[in-house]
């Protein structure tokens, strides 16, 4: 299972990096979204993998998943939505003012 999650995070990062190197705004925003998926998963698994024991206190359970990374990731998900929205609207604004969706804000010759 550890191998599988390492591969998932690796592939998500690779896609994110590749897309964020593109020259148009829309793929770059997608790339940032991928990177935040990767980072969120990365943070979560830093508490190691636990299956079937959510951190909800119950009388007869003694072992729980680590709640701290989960709390961090929960707000991170919401904040990355805010950030994605901000960037995509910025892209729209740039598109409306420059007339193109180049990330550098200018036409390439």
């Amino acid at each position: 299972m550890e191998l599988l999650i390492s591969l998932i995070i690796g592939v998500l990062t690779a896609s994110g990096v590749y897309l964020s190197l593109r020259g148009r705004t829309f793929p770059v925003v997608l790339g940032l979204t991928f990177l935040s998926y990767a980072v969120n998963l990365f943070l979560l698994v830093m508490g190691r993998l636990t299956i079937g024991n959510p951190p909800i206190i119950a009388a007869d359970i003694t072992r729980y998943a680590d709640p701290l990374p989960q709390a961090l990731v929960l707000t991170a998900i919401v904040i990355s939505f805010g950030m994605t929205a901000f960037v995509i609207v910025l892209a729209l604004k740039a598109f409306s003012e420059m007339g193109n969706d180049q990330v550098d804000g200018k036409h390439k010759p």
Binding site: E2, L3, I5, S6, G10, A14, S15, G16, L21
Partner: peptide, 15 residues
């Protein structure tokens, strides 16, 4: 290549 290197590095780190 850059993306694969980055992804590979992160995967190794997580592992």
């Amino acid at each position: 290549i850059i993306a694969s290197a980055a992804g590979g590095g992160v995967a190794l780190l997580v592992w």
